[in-house]
Design a protein around this nucleic acid. Structure first.
Length: 274
DNA sequence: ACCACTACCTGAAGGC
DNA sequence: TGCCTTCAGGTAGTGG
């Protein structure tokens, strides 16, 4: 997916469009399900509600309205784009349309339909949010904390970074990139990563996520900013999808290796990462 | 309890 | 050109 920087970028784009404080006019569900059913309650309960607040939690967009929470997850291929009430043409895989009284329209497109669009209660813990771990850009995410949560773990450090119950927002791309930047090999048993390395990992993860947000995220294929433009951070990848290429740090030809870890293709430089 | 692996779905790219 | 296989920003669920 869309990892933290992409979702954060969508949030910032929507905030800049002035979605907060707008009143929802209609919710158009153009099919019956994404990863989970698109329930009729969305159509019944949302019109008339004002969006009071919009935040990102992990890789979820959380719209807070007067009486509800509205959760949006982009899955692997989801994107929100702007339209206006004048638009009546839809594209393939446009599954949800949120219309506002101002005339603004938001359209959710998701070819693979791994995304989620659901109502949640303000009062009760939500099934999607309740097991989420540390926000990497918050102060709760620091070297000592990462050191603690990795101690008993025998799985590779990359799995911990991607495990949303431990650290949220870091997905397959940024895990490889952060491990490279910190000089830590993705296959290292998490429990054997040193304090000093945790220090470096925390710093690099933060740095890379921030830079990626500033670049509008990474577009591999489907992800788009809300204005339809691609992100730009894919141009800054040091290792992701660069198997066999020269390492940007040590310069040696044919250095970047890849291997499946935690079910996902993983990239690293065996010379720069230990 | 932990960890690796599968399934969910569509479309693009590569091999033949 | 076309058919077949593989792979892709995620993650809940499973089975060892």
């Amino acid at each position: 997916m869309p990892e933290l920087p992409e979702v954060e970028n969508v949030k910032l784009n929507l905030q800049a469009l002035g979605v907060v404080n707008q009143r929802i006019k209609a919710v158009d569900l153009r099919r019956k399900d994404l990863r989970t059913p698109l329930k009729k309650e969305l159509k019944m309960l949302l019109p008339g509600q004002i969006i009071r607040h919009l935040e990102r939690r992990a890789k979820y967009l959380v719209f807070e309205t007067d009486d509800h929470l509205l959760l949006s997850h982009l899955g692997m291929t989801g994107s929100w784009r702007v339209g206006s009430s004048a638009d009546t043409e839809y594209e393939k895989h446009d599954h949800v349309v949120l219309s506002f009284e101002s005339g603004l329209k938001l359209i959710f497109n998701d070819p693979r339909r791994f995304g989620i669009f659901e109502l949640a209660s303000k009062a009760k813990p939500n099934r999607w949010l309740k097991h989420l771990g540390l926000e990497p850009l918050s102060s709760e995410f620091h070297a000592e904390r990462l050191f603690e949560i990795t101690r008993a773990v025998k799985a590779p450090i990359k799995s911990v970074l991607m495990d949303q119950r431990r650290v949220v927002g870091v997905g397959n791309i940024y895990a490889s990139e952060a491990l490279f930047a910190a000089g830590v090999k993705p296959t290292r048993v998490a429990g054997r990563v040193t304090r000093a390395e945790c220090e470096l990992l925390v710093r690099r993860i933060r740095e890379i996520l921030r830079k990626a947000i500033q670049a509008g995220g990474s577009t591999i294929r489907d992800y788009r900013q809300v204005n339809g433009e691609s992100g730009r951070y894919q141009n800054a990848f040091a290792v992701y999808n660069r198997e066999g290429q020269a390492c940007v740090r040590c310069g040696e030809e044919g250095r970047i290796r890849s291997k499946v870890i935690a079910g996902r293709n993983t990239f690293w430089c065996p010379r720069c990462q230990r």
